[in-house]
Structures are given as structure tokens and as C-alpha cells.
Design a protein around this nucleic acid. Structure first.
Lengths: 335, 335
DNA sequence: ATGAAAGCGCTAACAG
DNA sequence: CTGTTAGCGCTTTCAT
């Protein structure tokens, strides 16, 4: 009688049932071509009958490989990440990796906690939103010696793979679009104000300053963005700066919320007020008028991450480098 | 020289550095009160210096406990789940559980695959969206003998814990609200048509039939729902049934998309066409007019799941039972 | 308060 | 194609 035992069905049980040793059963599962066809069948049926479920921890411990990768996303309710995730998942699951999702709530402290957790789980790579991390997180990542992907934004000093787009440049380009259309009193509206939101806003500032225009018409909040918030903040801005001609919103949710508030006030968009968002989510094509936005190549980002990460996992050397996948301005009808 | 070794820092390394055995280090980590204060400090600093990261697989294998729970969600881009997730995560992480997120893409086959995967990982409980599962999934769940939560919808035959709301009843109640307001030619618009969407639609049918009204004005698609799709489907419905007085949309995205299409056509909502959605997402309060919707208690669902699951994890017996957390109809201004 | 021994379930390495 | 042996890194159990 064993002193400890989980009562779970193990390889050993299958092996006894079939009349071989457990290593053969193990092989039948992992390298079927090394096992005779008849045995293979008998093993399969024994597994089925007994309801064997492999113990991932035991396998990972013995082999030193977890076949899993962690993907950290800032928020579950932000659809920006869903396409990126699809690209990543498709590429990696094909190669036998399980993608473990964690969400940071836009906090680098929570990101640090998750990095620690997933390193304990022995993930073979980490995909992180953004390029800002806590000092301890960076130390953990360095020690772990596993591939790391930083995504969404670009950084001068990537830890490893960096795939995204230049958020500052994109913010600047969208602002320039306002200016090209003749708008002058262009404000900025931002929520949450994570690093990417800050970069976009900085892009707006740069463009405005280069055009010799005022950057005073700016309203931001640390609160999470939402449609409602977009409407409320638009109202505040119009109160304070009734002369506004256009507003660049840090993301599509805010822009849509702002548009709804304009509709409520019977303000014509873009004649009385031009609006633009950021990301090119589905909603920007559905509203009336469609919203101007910066279309980000999210699916491409996901595919690219999968491809480059697989190369690293399969032995490609560490060569920290950024890959800029660009963006596209879409004027919609709101600008 | 050991034949195999990962090169990672282990408990053994810490122990040697401090001059104790590894079991003492292990205790210092898990039951600090059993270790003398001075040792505790020396162990902590050694861990810090060497950058020790515990190996979760080894711990899980030795103890038979993974301290993790899997939460499967249908889609990352659907914010319906984000509040549920928050409630679950807060409750469980406080109790020392790591919540692993997986997404099924609304497919019970993918759900089955994820259940299998996470059982291999040794999760101590599973939280599933919905009550429809493949036969093999049910078998796996039964064999695993761990707590299972089925959520969002209610079922007569819960596997274990079941927390949600009566989707059929909710669909019926929203339809009845149309009828109470005097609308008669009320259609139904649905996308994706997963089980919950089907239940909502069945609720609409029931209410219409009980009122002796036609259920012909119904358009559904298996495609994922989106704002754009809501607009396109509304257009099709108006083409086909120009006499429509109201449309109950299976979710808020479709309803919002439909509203935008009405705005494009300069159709007054609700005078020319009444609209309603389902879930009570943020957008329903932001549009102009605000959208009628079925407000679902998502945060409460999450909190309730956490509470009941913790009880089960701490030994409460298996007592399959459903908990109906209800819903609220909000008329908004579109109905 | 600390230690020794055994073992969790699996796979790497080598043998045949 | 199949088996033997050792060990992955940790925790349990029992001793001291």
C-alpha cells in the first residue's frame, strides 16, 4: 500500500492493464510511430476505459518543458486584444503550445505578479502588453532566459521581440489630419491614461505645437474609458471650451461616446465638431457618421508575434529588435 | 555532475547557501511561523540574491494541489464576461487560487478541449459558460471529481453549482414589455445563435404566441455579432418586413448597430421603430436615445460564483442546485 | 524548530 | 520496438 497516492489513474495503471511498462505507454502518447500498431490500439482502448488524464505537472517536471506560453492582456473588456490573441493562439497552438491568458488591469504591478506566477508555471515564453515594466519584473524576465514579446507600442530598448506600432507617430498623424482639413482648435480627450494613451496624447501635442497651435484644450482622467465617459467628458470640454472645432479621442470608445453626446445635443458632426478615435474597432464603421480613427493592424500583430516567437522557441538567437507594423488613418465621416 | 538538470535555482541551492536543508526552506515559504525568525530572514535574502522562482509543477506534483481554477469564457471581445471575471478573480485570489482563463470561441468542442487541457494542469475547479457540453466533456467532468460551475444560464440538471438567470424568461419579459407598450409587429434579430441566444429567441416566440401574434419577423445568423452586423441585419429586416414596429435584438451590440442604422435612415426611435437589446452593457446608456435592454447582474454572478465555489473547495458537499439571480428590464428611451 | 527518507507521475538516457 | 534506471523539484510523513 503506497503511503501517498492521489487515486488518479496514472500511466502505471494503463501499463499494467495492457501488460507493458509505463514508458511504452508514455511513448505511445508522445511518439506513436515508435510503438507497434497493435500495442498502440490496446493502449488507446485502455486509456479510454480507465479514463486516463495525463498529469501535466509530472510531465513538465520530468521533461523540463511546459509547452505553454503566457499572454498578458490589459483588460478583458477591450476588444483591441481579441484579434491579436486569435493570431497568437492560432500560430502557437498549431505548434503544440497552450496559451495561458492573464489580465493585468492596466497595472504594471499586477503584470509583475502575473509574470512571477507564470514563471512558476514554467511558461516557455511571455507576451506582454506594452514596454513599461516594474524593475522587479525586468529582473524576473532577464533571469528567466525565455523569449519575451512586448507588443502594441514600440520601444527603443526592447527586451527581446517587440512588435507593434508607433503610438506617438499615430497620434501625431491623426492630429495632422485634423489640421489638413482646416481644423485649428483641436482638443484631446483621454481616459485611463496608460502608457499608450500618453504616447497618443504626446503625438497630439507635438503636432499642435509644430503648427503653432494651443494645446490647452485637453481633458484626461485616470478612470477606465467607456462610452458613457466619452459623452460626459465631451460635455465638460464643451462647457469649458465652447470654441472647440474638433476632438481627438484617445480611443474609439470615447469617440463613440462623444459622438452620441453630439447627437443628443443635435450638434452636427463634423460640421460643428469633428471627432476621431483610435484603433479602428467595429463600432467606428457602424455609427452615423462613421468615426475617423487610426486603424491598427491587430490581426497582423498577432500573426507576426506568433511567427517570430515560434522562431525563437525553435532556437533562433536573441536579437532584440522592434518591428513597426504601422497604422492607417481612416477619415470615416466624422472628420 | 547530474545527468539532467535545468540549471534553474532550486530550493536545494537556497538551502546550501543558508546552511540548512531544503525542507526548512520549503517551510519558510509555506509556513513561516514554523521557522525561527533569524533563519527566516537569511532564507529570504538568499532567495532574493539567487533569484529563486518556485517550480509550480514540482509543488503541485508533490502536494497533489495546484491552487488554480480554470475560468472558460466564450469570447475575449465580449465585455459581458469582464465583470463576472472580476468578481470571481477577487474572491478566489484572496483565498490563494490562481484563475486561469481560457476562451472557447462559443464552441463546445473547443470547450471540451480546454476542459481536457486544464484537467491535465490539475485545476481544482472549472467554471464554464453555459450548461451545454459535449458528452465527452461531461464524462471528463464527472471523472475529475472537482467542483464545476455552470454559469450565465440556468439548467434543470446542473452538474454541480449553477449560477445565472433564466434567459428564456428574460427574453419573454422583454418581449412582453414591447407588447405592454402597444407594439404588435415585433421582430427578433439574432447573431451567433449560441444556446443563450436561442433561449432568448424562444422567449420572444413564447411571448408573441401567447399574445396571438406572428413570429415570422425573425432574422438570425450564425456569424459573430457586431455593431456593423446589427445595422446590416436591420436593413434586411426592414426590406423584408417594412411594417415592423419593434425589434428585440439578442444582444446590445446588435441593438446599437440597429440604432445607428435607424439614425442613418433618419428613422425615429422609438416612434417609427422601437429597439431593445440584451445585457445592459455600458453602451446602452450612452446612445441617443438610450437603448432598452435586459440588465443582467454580472458582477453579482461573479461574486456569487466565488462565494459558492470557495465553499465547495473548502469541503462543502456536492449538492447540485441552480441559483437564479434574476434580471431587470430597462426601457431606456428606445422602447 | 529542524532533518531524513520516501515518493508524487512522468520522461531522459542508455541498453538491448 | 520495448525495458531499466535514475531523477526532475518539491512536499509528505515520521523522527528527533
Amino acid at each position: 500500500m503506497p503511503r501517498r497516492s492521489s487515486g488518479r489513474v496514472t500511466l502505471q495503471h494503463i501499463a499494467e492493464r495492457v501488460g507493458v511498462t509505463k514508458i511504452t505507454v508514455s511513448r505511445a502518447l508522445r511518439e506513436p510511430h515508435l510503438v507497434s500498431a497493435t500495442l498502440q490500439l490496446r493502449i488507446e482502448s485502455a486509456i479510454d476505459e480507465l479514463g486516463y488524464i495525463p498529469n501535466h505537472s509530472a510531465g513538465a517536471l520530468a521533461s523540463g518543458r511546459s509547452h505553454s506560453v503566457a499572454l498578458l492582456i490589459p483588460s478583458l473588456s477591450n476588444s483591441v486584444f481579441s484579434e491579436i490573441q486569435r493570431g497568437i493562439e492560432e500560430g502557437l497552438s498549431e505548434a503544440g503550445y497552450q496559451v495561458l491568458i492573464g489580465h493585468t488591469g492596466y497595472s504594471i504591478l499586477e503584470e509583475e505578479r502575473l509574470i512571477d506566477t507564470y514563471l512558476r508555471y514554467g511558461v516557455e515564453a511571455l507576451i506582454l502588453p506594452g514596454s513599461r515594466h516594474t524593475g522587479h519584473a525586468c529582473r524576473l524576465l532577464r533571469q528567466a532566459r525565455i523569449p519575451v514579446v512586448e507588443t502594441l507600442e514600440l520601444t527603443e530598448t526592447p527586451l527581446d521581440i517587440n512588435v507593434g506600432l508607433d503610438q506617438h507617430q499615430a497620434g501625431k498623424a491623426m492630429t495632422q489630419t485634423f489640421l489638413d482639413q482646416g481644423y485649428r482648435r483641436v482638443g484631446f480627450l483621454g481616459a485611463r491614461m496608460d502608457h499608450r494613451a500618453q504616447l497618443r496624447m504626446a503625438g497630439w501635442e507635438t503636432a499642435m505645437q509644430q503648427a503653432g497651435l494651443s494645446t490647452e484644450r485637453c481633458l484626461t482622467t485616470p478612470h477606465p474609458s467607456s462610452y458613457r465617459l466619452g459623452g460626459e467628458m465631451l460635455a465638460s470640454m464643451l462647457d469649458r471650451w465652447p470654441d472647440l472645432e474638433g476632438i481627438f479621442c484617445g480611443n474609439d470608445d470615447l469617440a463613440a461616446g462623444a459622438l452620441f453626446e453630439c447627437q443628443r445635443r443635435r450638434m452636427n458632426v463634423p460640421d460643428q465638431l469633428a471627432l476621431a478615435g483610435f484603433n479602428g474597432l467595429d463600432i467606428t464603421e457602424a455609427t452615423s457618421p462613421p468615426l475617423a480613427t487610426v486603424v491598427t493592424p491587430r490581426r497582423l500583430i498577432g500573426d507576426t508575434i506568433a511567427r517570430r516567437l515560434l522562431a525563437r522557441l525553435q532556437g533562433a538567437p536573441l536579437q532584440p529588435a522592434s518591428e513597426d507594423l504601422g497604422f492607417r488613418i481612416r477619415r470615416g465621416g466624422s472628420l
